[in-house]
Amino acid sequence: MLEILNWIAALLALGTSIGLLLSRDWRWGLAILAAQYLSMFWLVNYHWPASMAAVKLVTGWMVCAALGATLRGSTQPPTSGTAWPEGRLFRLLASGLVALATFALAQRAATWLSIDLAVAWGSLLLVGMGLLHLGVTAQPLRVILGLLTLLAGFEILYATVESSVLVAALLSIINLCLALAGAYLLDAPTLEESA
């Protein structure tokens, strides 16, 4: 049963990471990111106690809230880089390639680390999609979303080998700091140098 739920979480990660790559509206982007943290929570929960795994979920949602609050108050909402249909079709195909490549890699990773295949695929998929995201954009919000996706994937895989409370805390701080850095970068063009 747990394995089936893991596969559902991995498929959710696939759906959300593709959704993040294709979404144009920042509101949709953040809602999808929040759902992505839900899949991350479940995949981490397989190796960690629920109370520890919940830290990842809460942190992720705090990240979404911080970015959302900034974008809501922003006078210059972020714009997308490319236009329909070329951009979306290319991204969809690239996502498919990443999903296939990571699935092949996940089988070896699962054997090597002795972990569930769904967990290995979910994590490598997020890492791959994060890298893809970083490769196709230079827009501040997109870069931050790409880095958050990449870190989410890494954290799932790292949770299978390390269960230290301090590491969990430091990784949560890094996620929050990344969101704050993103919030600053989104607002920086409209901020004025203080006298």
Partner: peptide, 23 residues
Amino acid sequence: LLIEMAVLLAVPLLSPPDHAPAR
């Protein structure tokens, strides 16, 4: 992890207010 935190702290230092963040 601590170096990464320092990197994130460096972001406002390298991107002054009133300027769009650069590549």
